[in-house]
């Protein structure tokens, strides 16, 4: 097939909502867009292990300790599936890791905020995973097959995480005055950064247009953000917590909430490395990588010795 026919075939598949598979022809920009998006997603899972990992050794009960450990382990597992999905597009895991550690690749900005209390484990599960699910449910229908399939499994685990997070928050909100204050404080700190997770408003989102055209994304940032707000407000009310937004108001006509604008200047600062924990998060991954160098070298040396013995 010539280039025009290949492109037509690709467009045709998209039009029929058929998945694009690794061996199919695809436009270079589609491939690049996917590598960027899937690897960012993988990096987010891996860097996302750190803010929650921060509380594993201090979790306040054995049950909470085990659930948190299992959750962080799931996130690492999601990172692995996603790196594998990205590899099907012709990039190696080493290269992806290098992009993360050199600061070239991005990860979700939310993980550049610190976890200052136990209630943050609740807020992250409830809000951050809740927001991630909005995106990921949509991505189960994304046009690239391996990514869509990875999302199906990830979504199942994420919704479990979200319920766990909400449960942490509801126990705290119904607890002692100190616990309730802890829960409200976590909501106050995580609310706006969570809304920013959906990305800039559609009008200002550089990558959105192509993503929608190629059916990588099927809904806009603003649509997803609105759905998240609509879903979350009643959940907060149910456990007696207050969303820190004075402009929040039910809008009968649109059957949804009107809400305030996140501070996009803060968003830009965090994206450009100036969030409260950017240095710590990347620093922790770099340190783990450097500290592990002798281990990886030894494993490789051992493997090549075995090969010699076998030969």
């Amino acid at each position: 097939m010539d280039a025009t026919a290949l492109a037509a075939n690709f467009e045709n598949k998209l039009a029929k909502n058929e998945n694009i598979e690794p061996k199919d022809w695809m436009p270079d920009n589609y491939r690049k867009h996917l590598i960027r998006q899937i690897s960012q997603h993988a990096h987010s899972e891996v860097v996302g292990m750190l803010p929650e990992g921060n509380w594993i050794t201090r979790a306040p009960s054995l049950r909470r300790k085990m659930v948190l450990l299992a959750k962080v382990q799931d996130e690492g597992g999601h990172g692995l599936y996603l790196y594998s999905a990205a590899e099907t597009l012709g990039i190696s895991r080493e290269e992806l890791l290098h992009q993360l550690l050199s600061g070239k690749a991005k990860y979700s900005s939310i993980f550049n905020y610190p976890t200052l209390s136990w209630a943050d484990m609740g807020a992250i599960g409830w809000l951050v995973d809740g927001a991630a699910i909005m995106n990921q449910v949509m991505l189960q229908r994304t046009s690239y097959g391996p990514y869509a399939r990875a999302m199906v499994r990830i979504c199942k685990e994420e919704s479990f995480h979200q319920r766990q997070g909400y449960e942490i928050m509801s126990v705290l909100a119904a607890g002692s005055p100190e616990q309730k204050a802890m829960a409200q404080d976590a909501l106050n700190r995580f609310w706006w950064p969570t809304l920013m997770m959906f990305g800039p408003s559609d009008a200002n989102s550089a990558n959105s247009e192509n993503a929608i055209k190629w059916k990588i994304k099927r809904e806009s940032n603003d649509q997803l953000r609105q759905r998240f707000v609509n879903q979350t407000i009643p959940q907060a009310e149910l456990i007696g917590l207050t969303i820190p937004d004075a402009q929040l108001k039910w809008n009968e006509a649109k059957q949804g909430y009107d809400f305030g604008e996140p501070d996009w200047e803060e968003f830009n600062q965090v994206i450009h490395g100036n969030g409260p924990c950017n240095k710590e998060r990347l620093g922790a991954r770099l340190k783990a990588h450097d500290d592990g160098k002798w281990v990886r070298e030894a494993a490789a040396a051992y493997a090549s010795k075995r090969k010699l013995v076998a030969a």
Partner: peptide, 17 residues
């Protein structure tokens, strides 16, 4: 559990956890 997020490779962080 202290290794979670700090291991020499992702697979080993999962194994330790």
């Amino acid at each position: 559990s202290e290794w979670t997020g700090h291991g020499p490779m992702l697979e080993e962080e999962l194994a330790s956890a």
